[in-house]
């Protein structure tokens, strides 16, 4: 049981170093402001104890400028840190355009990952070092939370909704990955490892994983599903049923029957498959059945990845 005491978590990314620097400097400022209060409190209590004869004349009862000073100055100092912390926070929500996308699906009590190249894994997640990785995440049941202490990041996975975050793990190694949102009986054993590999090791790992009988990339899996599940029956350009053609739809604006226009992102496409009556494309009848009981969250991810890979010119197959 003697694993020793580990007083600081490993820093697996530049962001982790930034967060440590932030809490370190903010902690230092907080101490600078607090220490005088504690010292004065103790000193006053001892000096002005009842049995001690000491000058107590002209004790002040109020002073507006003192009040404003100790209200406003610490507040302004704190606002500086607020700007810093908010910038860092916005960073982890703005993935660089070249980030690779890994889909994460959580369920009681496991993590499932789908790499763009088609590799799939459970609980342990392999990523390349020094490359931005965006996680697009959802849950099949309750709320979970993806937490890697070594990266100082955490994001809830919410059923019925996509959330995302990105990171760039710079140091190869194994980092603990834990569920941070209470999710029921086995919450405390819902974990795994983030395994950061050198890019060439990651490539080797990907090719080894592909030997496991997997059928192509995530988008290719999605293309197969698009035919198998009958999507192409209506959504192909030549289809007799009036349904929107979906080639190149990802990222484009879609006019809705209620007059709104939305961007066709992961959330919109997933909702269109699972809750087809939620947002209806303008000009089309609301005739699509829900696939909520037919498709798993991972199959939806594959379909979305497929739609993402198509272009308007080539049309949907």
């Amino acid at each position: 049981m003697s694993a020793g005491i580990e007083l600081w978590p490993p820093q697996a990314s530049h962001h982790a170093e930034q967060v440590d620097l932030l809490i370190g400097s903010f902690g230092a400022m907080v101490w600078l402001l607090t220490l005088p209060v504690f010292v004065l409190m103790t000193w006053f209590t001892i000096r002005y104890r009842r049995s001690h004869q000491v000058n107590r004349q002209h004790a002040p009862t109020h002073n507006l400028w003192v009040e404003l000073g100790w209200s406003v100055i610490p507040f302004l100092l704190t606002l500086g840190f607020y700007v810093w912390a908010t910038m860092l926070f916005f960073d982890i929500h703005r993935p660089p355009p070249d980030a690779m996308t890994i889909h994460v699906v959580a369920k009681q009590w496991m993590w499932k990952y789908q790499h763009p190249e088609g590799a799939r894994e459970i609980n342990d997640l392999h990523v390349p070092a020094g490359e931005p990785v965006e996680l697009v995440m959802t849950s099949e049941d309750v709320i979970h939370s993806f937490f890697v202490p070594g990266l100082r990041i955490k994001q809830d996975l919410v059923p019925g909704r996509y959330t995302s975050l990105w990171f760039n793990a710079s140091r190869p190694g194994r980092y603990a990955l834990r569920c941070a949102e209470f999710c029921g009986t086995d919450h405390s054993v819902m974990g795994g490892n983030l395994i950061v590999l050198q890019p060439q090791d990651y490539a080797a790992w990907l090719s080894r994983s592909a030997d496991g009988g997997l059928d192509g990339t995530l988008a290719e899996t999605g293309a197969t599903l698009f035919r198998q599940m009958g999507c192409s029956g209506c959504h192909a350009a030549a289809s007799p049923v009036r349904a929107p053609a979906l080639g190149g739809i990802f990222g484009r604006p879609v006019a809705l029957s209620d007059g709104r226009t939305v961007i066709a992102d992961e959330q919109y496409l997933s909702d269109a498959i699972l809750l087809p009556n939620k947002e209806i494309a303008a000009g089309y009848p609301s005739i699509m059945p829900t696939y909520g009981n037919v498709l798993t969250a991972e199959q939806v991810n594959a379909l979305v990845a497929y739609l993402k890979s198509t272009h308007a010119a080539q049309d949907s197959k």
Binding site: T45, R49, R50, R56, H58, T78
Partner: peptide, 29 residues
């Protein structure tokens, strides 16, 4: 986040005022 920082101000005011109350007081420990 901003509003949460703001709500700390009145709490801090109380702590500072309690400390100032002890100055030149006649304290029974």
């Amino acid at each position: 986040s901003f509003l949460s920082i703001a709500v700390a101000v009145p709490s801090a005011i109380k702590v500072y005022n309690w400390t100032a109350t002890l100055y030149k007081a006649d304290i029974a420990i």
